[in-house]
Computed example of a mutant assay.
Amino acid sequence: MNVLVEGPGDAPVLLLVHGFGGSLRSFDPVARLLSDRFRIVRADLRGHGRTGGHSGLDARSQARTLADSIGDLSGVTAVGHSFGADVVLELAAQTDAVSRTVLIGQAPDYRHATFPPGHGLLAAPGVSPVLRSLAGAPVTTWALRRTAWHRLRTDFAATSPAMARVVLTERRKLLAERPLDEQLRDLGLPTLVILGSRDRLYDSAATATRYAAAGARVHVLPGAGHSPFASHPARVAGLLAEWAAVRTE
């Protein structure tokens, strides 16, 4: 697993875990703001970025690989965006390294999801490989090289086609059986949830209500979408710094 570690060795540890189709570079804006005060640990999940691979892609397997990769860290504040939220909760269940968690832009399940029409086609045989090939094509690279879409294109091109089925099909069933709010309630760890008021994938109001009922502290950022750390990096960095600094009694 490709891991990037930045910041003082004796500082509190922030583990930043990206979502489906992302990479450790997804958190660049936030890492730049926090690496002077925190030990920032980031990793490309399996099937993503420089880690690659086409197996062991589900959240539980990802957490096992991640646990092996981060070594003997302790007192970790584990931050997960979207699918990464599943991974950090699994990591917290599998190891004592995690002392608190942060979930960003992720609902407990797909009950209130508003995915774009036809999104399920990504999981259809042959579709995801074609889209991945198009994302990596020279003409696409050239056309998007100076736009905000460049990082998204690069990350998607490196994502295993098998991830689409894991996230869009298998994950839907797993979360229906055991939603994330139920998981964090069972873990009993302090949890912060950061949502965007304009998230087009999940209803932020319904999501906030469910997580608050499970005992999480919830912040809904006005004007932010599904990835608030990209649009509001300073605000998210401030919330993470405050949350990671709180001592667990």
Rank of each mutant, 00 (worst) to 15 (best):
21 G>C: 04
130 V>K: 01
191 T>Q: 05
132 R>D: 07
197 S>A: 15
48 H>N: 14
4 L>K: 08
133 S>V: 10
7 G>P: 08
182 E>W: 00
238 G>L: 00
101 T>N: 02
225 G>E: 00
178 R>K: 09
152 L>D: 14
140 T>D: 13
179 P>Y: 10
34 L>R: 03
42 R>P: 02
135 A>K: 02
133 S>C: 11
119 H>F: 15
18 H>D: 04
162 A>W: 01
249 E>K: 01
138 P>V: 10
120 G>S: 06
182 E>M: 02
156 F>K: 05
223 G>Y: 14
116 P>C: 12
213 A>Y: 02
27 F>M: 06
14 L>C: 04
65 T>A: 15
107 A>M: 09
190 P>D: 07
34 L>K: 01
150 H>M: 14
204 S>F: 13
232 H>E: 06
67 A>K: 07
151 R>H: 13
5 V>W: 00
231 S>P: 05
10 D>H: 02
93 A>D: 09
130 V>N: 01
125 P>K: 02
165 R>I: 07
57 L>N: 02
25 R>V: 14
192 L>M: 00
149 W>K: 10
120 G>W: 02
88 V>K: 00
169 T>C: 13
211 Y>H: 10
138 P>H: 04
179 P>M: 09
239 L>I: 07
141 T>F: 09
74 S>K: 10
63 A>Q: 08
143 A>K: 00
40 I>D: 15
69 S>G: 11
127 V>Y: 08
54 H>V: 04
159 T>G: 05
32 R>G: 14
209 T>A: 15
74 S>Y: 13
90 E>S: 12
105 G>V: 14
79 V>T: 04
208 A>H: 00
166 V>D: 12
247 R>K: 12
136 G>I: 14
208 A>K: 01
246 V>W: 06
41 V>N: 06
240 L>C: 11
44 D>Y: 00
6 E>D: 11
122 L>Y: 15
137 A>S: 11
168 L>Y: 14
237 A>N: 00
165 R>W: 09
134 L>H: 06
